[in-house]
């Protein structure tokens, strides 16, 4: 074992990864799939969606695998009844907090939230659903922001800041009222900082930001951040 390598077990598979690797990365590199929503490779980890929670043997707590670094001897469990129940609950919370109506959404069939609900068998939402009426911003030439479909994962905010480097998008308010805003809460069409690079639409896991008139299956590209970084660091 070379220096700086950490040896651990993920779902009973023995793996070796470099020191400082997050559990999620270590799992991915070894073919273990952990569900995620806010994570995008190449962007700062956010730790907001709590889908990637895992158990670590010997601790009663749960850990968000995207922000927990590996350490030697860890025994990680990524699938258990409890984790499944918690992930299903998280999905139900997300589905119930805003008006997520797949049948009338541009992202229908290209949506990570919809896909996860399918995979985990979330066939209904046990909680009362909110029917929100947040403003929809369609003032931009081709980018549209529908806050009613937003799951507040901040992928768009992070890609705009960290990859495109303009920080046009950010958040306002807090809690259930939190919303993605453009510049200082202006109309997108009047934004002076937006470069119309579309990266926000590419990383949006749902149909909250999309390119008007183009098929979502064509415009989504979760790997855009990783790609740009790989070119930049070449």
């Amino acid at each position: 074992m070379s220096a700086g390598t950490v040896k651990l077990k993920i779902d009973n598979i023995e793996v070796n990864v470099p020191e400082g690797t997050m559990i999620l990365e270590a799992a991915r590199a070894n073919g273990v799939v952990i569900p995620t929503l806010c994570d995008v490779e190449g962007l700062t980890a956010y730790g907001g969606c709590r889908m990637c929670m895992v158990e670590i043997h010997g601790s009663p707590k749960l850990f968000a695998s995207c922000v927990t670094p590996v350490s030697t001897g860890m025994e990680i469990v990524t699938q258990s009844d409890k984790l499944k129940e918690y992930r299903k609950m998280a999905l139900q919370f997300i589905l119930s907090e805003r008006s997520h109506i797949c049948s009338v959404c541009v992202a229908n069939n290209s949506c990570e939230l919809q896909k996860l609900a399918n995979e985990l068998g979330v066939d209904h939402v046990q909680f009362e659903r909110e029917w929100t009426s947040f403003p929809v911003d369609s003032t931009h030439d081709f980018l549209v922001l529908d806050r009613n479909r937003c799951i507040l994962c901040t992928r768009c905010v992070r890609v705009c800041d960290e990859i495109e480097g303009v920080h046009t998008l950010d958040l306002k308010l807090r809690g259930k009222d939190e919303q993605v805003i453009v510049d200082l809460d202006d109309q997108w069409g009047e934004s002076t900082s937006c470069t119309s690079c579309r990266k926000c639409a590419k990383v949006c896991p749902v149909g909250a930001i999309y390119v008007e008139g183009e098929a979502l299956s064509e415009t989504k590209d979760k790997n855009v951040a990783k790609f740009v970084l790989s070119r930049r660091n070449r």
């Binding site: 109506i101 659903r129 929100t132």
Partner: peptide, 15 residues
């Protein structure tokens, strides 16, 4: 979906 979530029928709830 209408029976399960409200779906399109439920769109009026936002109004």
């Amino acid at each position: 979906d209408c029976a399960v979530t409200g779906n399109v029928t439920g769109l009026r709830n936002s109004l």
